[in-house]
Write a protein that binds this DNA or RNA. Sequence first.
DNA 1: GTCTATATCCCGATAGAC
DNA 2: GTCTATCGGGATATAGAC
Lengths: 222, 222
Amino acid sequence: MRSSKRETRKNDPDKTKEDILAAATEEFAALGLAGGRVDAIAERTKTSKRMIYYYFGSKNGLYLAVLEKAYSQARTYETDLNLAALEPIEALRKLINHTFDHDEASPDFVRLVMNENIHRAAHLKQSKVIADFSVPALTALDDIIRRGRETGVFKHEIEAVDLHMLISSLCFFRVTNRHTFGTIFQCDLSDPETYRRHRQMASDTILAYVTSDCSTAQKTDP
Amino acid sequence: MRSSKRETRKNDPDKTKEDILAAATEEFAALGLAGGRVDAIAERTKTSKRMIYYYFGSKNGLYLAVLEKAYSQARTYETDLNLAALEPIEALRKLINHTFDHDEASPDFVRLVMNENIHRAAHLKQSKVIADFSVPALTALDDIIRRGRETGVFKHEIEAVDLHMLISSLCFFRVTNRHTFGTIFQCDLSDPETYRRHRQMASDTILAYVTSDCSTAQKTDP
DNA sequence: GTCTATATCCCGATAGAC
DNA sequence: GTCTATCGGGATATAGAC
């Protein structure tokens, strides 16, 4: 019932907020919180700097909003993959492949997370909704692990959180460290051929681990 | 032969530079390049802000010096491990364990690398000496891979660069993403028990991969 | 080589009209 | 709700004495 007299597309608060958030995501992902400029964000937007403060209160408030939006978009695909219909091994491979593709396709998200870790997650800890994002990831893995153990194809005992970390490690690093790694080793990690090889390697590695016998390689220390 | 008349520890340029570098490393690692303050660095130092500009020219110059020093310290341990004396599997495990321990013990280095990736390695690319750091890491791995293939214990073909990335991924992620991961999944990745479990998991995972038969798990796509 | 004081600019935040 | 203009703090960098 809002503004029924006026249907001109001016004064659309939701669209304005979305517009600001999109611009701020780019800016903060590219330059970090301290490096990002409110002026620059305003310039990318159809609206003005005054509106940023009107809607988000402060630079920090805007940054937190960007962070929450990025996380909420990132943690939704697990439930859409229909993993329960697949055998454990294929389900796990599908989940790894999707995580790999997602991280590769979301450099802004990856950079925001990196930046937030530099701040020791100080802003993320303020968020009230962020704990919910762990649920879909872990329940999907719990189910895969349980079925894999039951049918006997998974030889290694492993917790869902640890498996999730393993997957994240292999998918994330390529994206987060792309530039320093590429500079030092003179290679281009965004090359499609490299991309395919690493994707195969990621799932092969994790599957080799969960299906391997625990007693093969044990020595712990030098 | 420098300053032979005066042996008082005042006016020691090398020590002053080291002092500044150490303080700057902490500051930039904690807050990033844009977030770090030259004033704050000067306060941590025995010397003054003026000296920072005297020795390093600018904030960016100081940052680059910090970066080069961090990398040169990080990439030296491969040659000290005497890996050639060990069988391939044990050599690889020892290298992984050492990398794992090194990354865990060098949060400042890890954060600097993270920060530099946010800047798309713009500063690292300016450095002339940085390419040399790839050599020890790759030659050590080349040797291990060659011997592993000869004796037949390594079933998987793999390039040294890819293996290095695999190792780095598993060792780095725990440290880089410690805070966001810990916040979302309510766990403490710096806990010693977790540390041991993940260390074991890292080497078990990579060894499972290189010793696994290539033909076991092949399906590529969903 | 080292200090204090300061120039100069930039950025986050706000005022106030419409 | 949206705009322009601007304040005030703080940061990089420098000046100039010793």
